[in-house]
Design a protein around this nucleic acid. Sequence first.
DNA 1: TAACTAAGAATATCTTAGCAC
DNA 2: GTGCTAAGATATTCTTAGTTA
Lengths: 103, 103
Amino acid sequence: MNVFTKRLKEARLKTGLSQKKLGIAAGLDQFVASPRMNQYEKGSHLPDINTTKKICEVLGVPVAYLYCEDDELAQLIEKYGKLSDETKQKIRNVAGLSLNDFS
Amino acid sequence: MNVFTKRLKEARLKTGLSQKKLGIAAGLDQFVASPRMNQYEKGSHLPDINTTKKICEVLGVPVAYLYCEDDELAQLIEKYGKLSDETKQKIRNVAGLSLNDFS
DNA sequence: TAACTAAGAATATCTTAGCAC
DNA sequence: GTGCTAAGATATTCTTAGTTA
């Protein structure tokens, strides 16, 4: 079980969708959605980048989230897009990434 | 030019390595390193996950970095691993991810 | 209904052999 | 040396046709 499959399964279960329904929601044909999503989640195959993007859109997570090895960083990646601009800026300040840090 | 190719090129140029040298450092055969790394950087092909991991190790970036669409989040992903545990915890607090937030 | 798998079909990447700068 | 590409060889995923719980 690699990181991709772990994050994919966790994110899917959060939505309450079955493997098949997630695949259909991501634009896969109804007859292939079940085996393909299962192959992705079990790790026997890896989806191409476009399918990955669509799956992530349905799951509400960035693509980077599925590839993130570090659990804490993965949490941060998942939440980052839902934060206010103010909070994002605060995080950038703390991380030392601010371009406009005159403090 | 997609996100993967953009981040790959930027990260490689930061290291000062040529495409070929990066490929060799990532474990690719010397005769295939140049075309393969070029194919990855130009976006004609995508490397498998194991090759991606090795490339990222040489580049000093997490795999998630190459797949991150958001530029600011990508910066944060790149820097996160280099931060102190204290700074990481501060960021988690600001993001509202702390499990031990009794404030 | 949901999760899962084998195996041939289809499609992708990888290697070779180069060219252009 | 560096960046880059076409095309056949190779390895992967995708579809089909199911089984299992």
